[in-house]
């Protein structure tokens, strides 16, 4: 058993690391869904944009400036998307808002395509994070070790914010009942903006960690992690932050175990990488059929 772990350690390590990165993205999905009942299809692309900003900013600025700048710009991007694309549709049917989200995703991808010229951009090597280390004979990068801890710290901070601050209380109230909280004097728009900003901030952090591992950014590199993070959010019970985090870690680890299928299960074949993507969706569909509310989701009742 120990031998088995030893041999395949690199898969488990990268699984935990990717899981942490998905978790940070998934929180953005789950918080927005909790409040607006909207799948924010553009969230994965916000994550990709954060990666691209880093590529461009770090080429002319030192890291000490470019990292905070990327965080700020991503937060502004998230805020702007909500104001421009979702706020005007607040009273429209849910389908219109979802279509608008798809439109934003399409727009961001095309904008990225234009600015990058369709080429993969090399992600800068952030000092410390991209240094390589060897753990129990498995070569990896520092970022792999940092990610799970950073994720946990951020999640704890976020839960403290939601539990103990006024804006956090407002968020909880809005997610329970949109209309009533409005009557109680909560400024809905402020709460929603705040949610989008927090989600974008975490997505920006995730982009530092994720792209350091993958080394290049393309216009579509946000869509797969975005979809997987969304699956994680559904698995955990959409609207629940601890659920999203647990779901993300499970998906990250399973995905990498499948990627290592050839050596872990001893079944040959080179199609395992494509299957790791398919697995995520198969997983999603199984969850949706067996337990549509996810691990920690609340049961919703349809009223006529």
């Amino acid at each position: 058993m120990a031998d088995f772990f030893h041999q395949n350690l690199s898969y488990f390590l990268s699984g935990i690391s990717v899981g942490g990165q998905y978790a940070l993205i998934a929180i953005g999905y789950t918080m927005v869904y909790g409040i607006l009942r909207l799948i924010n299809f553009a969230h994965g692309d916000v994550f990709m944009c954060a990666g691209l900003m880093m590529v461009y900013l770090s080429s002319s600025l030192p890291f000490a400036i470019s990292i905070p700048l990327v965080l700020i710009l991503t937060v502004i991007l998230g805020f702007a998307i909500e104001r421009v694309a979702y706020k005007p549709l607040r009273s429209a049917p849910r389908m219109s808002v979802m279509i608008s989200a798809i439109g934003v995703s399409y727009l961001l991808q095309n904008a990225a395509l234009y600015f990058t010229g369709g080429l993969a951009r090399v992600y800068p090597e952030i000092p410390v994070l991209s240094a390589s280390v060897v753990i129990w004979d498995a070569p990896t990068r520092v970022v792999t070790l940092v990610t799970p801890f950073l994720t946990l710290v951020l999640v704890i901070l976020l839960s403290l914010l939601i539990k103990h601050t006024k804006i956090g209380m407002a968020m909880r109230a809005v997610s329970v009942d949109f209309e009533t909280s409005q009557i109680m004097g909560i400024k809905i728009n402020k709460v929603i903006s705040m949610t989008f900003m927090l989600g974008s901030l975490l997505a920006a952090v995730a982009s530092f960690l994720y792209f350091t591992n993958y080394a290049s950014v393309t216009p579509t590199s946000g869509s797969m992690p975005g979809l997987k993070a969304f699956v994680a959010a559904v698995f955990g019970g959409i609207g629940s932050i601890p659920g999203a985090v647990i779901g993300a870690f499970i998906i990250g680890i399973c995905e990498n175990i499948i990627k290592g299928g050839a050596s872990i299960f001893g079944i040959p074949g080179s199609g395992w990488t494509t299957f790791s993507d398919a697995f995520t969706f198969a997983f999603l569909i199984i969850i949706l059929i067996v337990k549509p509310t996810g691990l920690f989701g609340e049961k919703s009742v349809d009223k006529v």
């Binding site: 199609g271 494509t274 299957f275 198969a282 999603l284």
Partner: peptide, 22 residues
Amino acid sequence: SDYLAIATLGFAEIIRAVCQWD
């Protein structure tokens, strides 16, 4: 509604992945 959207999207991706399987 939105769960259906995501599930169908997921199936489309699975079909694409399986088609490329060697």
